[in-house]
């Protein structure tokens, strides 16, 4: 719980999204996970993740926010700030 900074629900929703995007069942999301760690996480998959996050959480991510993302933890922080 501590590692997830109290955002377990966001992590749970993101895990579903990541599993769907990468067609897997075993994604383990951690704050430091980034595109370098996941095979196939290219710019198109990145867009799929962003579009899914927007639909799932009912938010709009700005270009600046997307460009500043370094890892899953950053994404969770942006979502948490908007929901």
């Amino acid at each position: 719980m501590n590692a997830l900074n109290g955002h377990a629900d966001i992590y749970a929703a993101l895990t579903e999204i990541f599993n769907d995007v990468f067609m897997r069942d075993d994604m383990q999301l951690t704050p430091t996970l980034s595109a370098r760690d996941v095979p196939g996480w290219d710019s198109f998959k990145q867009i799929e993740i962003m579009v899914s996050v927007e639909e799932r959480f009912g938010i709009k991510l700005t270009t600046k926010e997307i460009d500043s993302l370094q890892n899953v933890g950053d994404l969770v922080a942006v979502i948490a700030g908007k929901t």
Partner: peptide, 14 residues
């Protein structure tokens, strides 16, 4: 429009 600038996708993947 943001997606257009990012990836030149005119129709959103959704």
């Amino acid at each position: 429009p943001a997606l257009w600038h990012r990836s030149k996708q005119e129709v959103t993947p959704a």
